[in-house]
Design a protein around this nucleic acid. Structure first.
Length: 522
RNA sequence: GGCGAAGUAGCUCAGCUGGUUAGAGCGGUGGAAUCAUAAUCCAUAGGUCGGGGGUUCAAGUCCCUCCUUCGCUACCA
């Protein structure tokens, strides 16, 4: 059986509809998952929604809705988004599911068994929005004399009985973990922040609430529900069968990487490993905190009116175009900027003009000059070998290495350079001029290009799955060859000898137009 | 206040452990080509690598300092 690979997105809080950040995270995670499949790994890819907590109750109530019914609807938007964006998750986990409650309770019991949970009374300033208590010293006064949390959310004085987790006990173990596994938190700037936070000392964490009941019941304390982060994080285990499906869980846990936003690094890099250590479970291998997408360099906010619906972008420009843009243009781990012009420019230049047009002109030449049959190779020239070397180095070496390191933009940089090399090659060789003068040479050139394009299409599958598949289908590339290992082998003659015949080639990436209402911005 | 990141061609950015004339894409300019989605290819544009100082035979690449932007964190009020 092939090597397992387990990856997750963060589990989204469906308090509102999915925004572009959710789409970005899902797309990036999906590209990695697809890449690993093409590398022959047996992939589990979990995403889902984190539906508990007082905030959901209140939002539902404000809308005059039943909480679960409201959660059903909101969660469905996230699932729809994933399906629309071609996200190849293996399970979409909702924290309101029964199996998830069981998983969370199992984790809780394991932590309790380690003596890390104790009941105490908590009095303090509580922010519903943040689902967190704050010390008086952390508060500041906002407009109208209202006390606000450090996140500028309103707080109220709350007294409740609560379970605590002995987080303080894990300070040294966590620091040791970070020091011995520099890859555990990435990028490095996030790692530094977390380390400094932990070095500053850890307080025990309040991990249950009694002020509402929309959550996972604490075993043996029916008045308590778990702190949302406890059960949200547990989703990563629910998704691979914890606690019942022991073989699935044993096979896929711990996760190879949790892809999350930079704003929730602490929960994943501090609380989560501490919970797991307490429960005696293996820790995820890597936490990757990606950056935020900024609209024309500015943070998205409702007040600025620059909130963009990712579904609208996908509809406007196409799913693959959007996926390509995000992964090519944004250096993974850093913040990125997007705008309609940037998307149109990038997608037209790379996908329509360079790659799409390359495929179109090559396949058209074969269609017209070879009657659609794949041309024979009559011995390669040095220029052909050079092109193969360039493509091979990119497709078999640089791209997989970069993707392996979650450096998608750099992998795509290598990819587009290889595409450029093909365009330079076709212009230099000018096969269209050889139809009568030297038809054999023309055939060899077209075959060389056909092979190169197939390799580039396979390498692009993780990023633009739909269009790359269409292209490979047009080209008649067998399914068995559509992975990083096989596409580098000698499959061409077999395909040519099978008398595969091309249809009239269809354009893959239509040139995009800048929508009228988008072009006039700053 | 502490820690950290960023500041490189008009724009968006690459530049790992310091080493020949600082790179790419887009845009601009001049050519070529016409198979192709008016797409492509070639050449080119002379940017004090935020300012200043230092180490070194040699510094975007190391050290110090200052400026600007951002992140994490602390504290005062």
């Amino acid at each position: 059986m092939s090597d397992p690979f387990y990856i997750t997105t963060a589990i989204a809080y469906p308090n509102g509809k999915p925004h572009i950040g959710h789409a970005y995270e899902a797309i990036a995670t999906d590209a990695i998952a697809r890449f690993q499949r093409l590398m022959g790994r047996d992939v589990r890819f979990i995403t889902g929604t984190d539906e508990h907590g007082l905030k959901m109750v209140q939002t539902a109530r404000a809308a005059g809705r039943d909480t679960l019914e409201f959660a059903d609807e909101m969660s469905s938007y996230f699932k729809e988004m994933c399906d629309k964006l071609n996200i190849s998750y293996t399970a979409f986990v909702r924290t309101s599911e029964d199996r998830h409650h069981q998983a969370s309770q199992a984790l809780w019991k394991a932590m309790e068994a380690s003596g890390d949970l104790y009941l105490d009374r908590y009095e303090g300033w509580y922010s519903v929005r943040d689902e967190a208590f704050y010390d008086e010293s952390e508060l500041h006064i906002g407009e109208g004399g209202i006390k606000l949390s450090p996140q500028d959310t309103p707080v109220e004085w709350t007294v409740e009985e609560t379970w605590f987790f002995r987080l303080s006990r894990y300070q040294d173990a966590l620091l040791k973990l970070f020091e011995e596994n520099p890859e555990f938190i990435q990028p490095d700037s996030r790692r530094n922040e977390v380390m400094r936070f932990v070095e500053g000392g850890l307080r025990d964490l309040s991990v249950s609430r009694t002020s509402f009941d929309w959550g996972v019941k604490v075993p043996g304390s029916p008045d308590h529900v778990m702190y949302v982060w406890v059960d949200a994080l547990t989703t990563y285990m629910t998704g691979v069968g914890y606690p019942d499906d022991r073989s699935e869980f044993a096979r896929f846990w711990p996760a190879d990487v949790h892809i999350i936003g930079k704003d929730i690094v602490r929960f994943h890099a501090v609380y989560w490993p501490a919970f797991l250590m307490s429960a005696g479970l293996p820790l995820p291998k890597r936490i990757f905190g990606h950056g935020f997408l900024l609209s024309r360099g500015e943070k998205m906010s409702k007040s600025l009116g620059n909130v963009v619906d990712p579904m609208e972008l996908a509809h406007l420009f196409g799913v693959d175009a959007l996926r390509y843009f995000f992964l090519r243009e944004v250096s993974f781990g850093q913040d990125g900027s997007y705008s309609a012009e940037a998307i149109v420019t990038r997608v037209n230049a790379d996908l329509a003009n360079s790659f799409g047009n390359l495929a179109q002109r090559t396949l058209s030449l074969i269609f017209k000059n070879c009657d659609g049959y794949l041309p024979e190779i009559h011995g390669h020239h040095r220029e052909d070998e050079e092109l193969f070397r360039t493509i091979g180095n990119s497709v078999s070496n640089e791209i997989p290495n970069h993707f392996q390191n979650l450096a998608m933009s750099q992998g795509l940089e290598s990819w587009i350079q290889a595409v450029f090399a093909c365009n330079a090659y076709i212009d230099a060789q000018a096969p269209w001029a050889l139809k009568k003068a030297d038809p054999k040479r023309m055939e060899t050139i077209l075959a060389t290009l056909f092979i190169s394009i197939a390799q580039l299409a396979v390498a692009a599958l993780p990023v633009i799955p739909e269009s790359a598949k269409k292209l490979l289908d047009q080209m008649g590339i067998p399914k068995a060859v559509r992975n990083f290992e096989m596409i580098g082998t000698h499959w061409y003659s077999g395909l040519a000898e099978s008398n595969y015949r091309l249809e009239q080639p269809q354009g893959l990436f239509p040139r995009l137009e800048l929508p009228l209402d988008e072009g006039s911005g700053t």
